[in-house]
Amino acid sequence: MTIYIPTPLRPYAEGKDQLDVRADTVQGALDKLTLTFPDLRKHLFTEEGKLRAFVNVYLNDEDVRYLPAKEATTVTATDTLSIIPSIAGGH
């Protein structure tokens, strides 16, 4: 499957905007990503190993947080995983 890396995280992924990995689950894919680029880990996960609150992970067009199996959801080679930091604000 293909993992898409957002602009702010590319400096910690050798400048790459995507990475193709072989994995069985969302968690497996994220593990491969952070094994390949260890500097990404602190940007994606808390010290307890949970996804940071402002980091959204989408399997195709579905928010992984709302999938029944969450990070344990199985994936196929044609799936895509998008990492999207949140955007909000106001005065």
């Binding site: 898409y4 957002p6 959204n56 989408y58 067009d61 928010d63 998008s82 999207i84 949140s86 955007i87 909000a88 604000g89 106001g90 005065h91």
Partner: peptide, 21 residues
């Protein structure tokens, strides 16, 4: 943020996924 659109904004992450695509 339709609850407070005069002073807050938020973009749905799924919309960002599509924009980035």
């Amino acid at each position: 943020r339709t609850d407070s659109a005069h002073n807050r904004y938020q973009i749905a992450p799924v919309e960002l996924v599509k924009i980035e695509r």
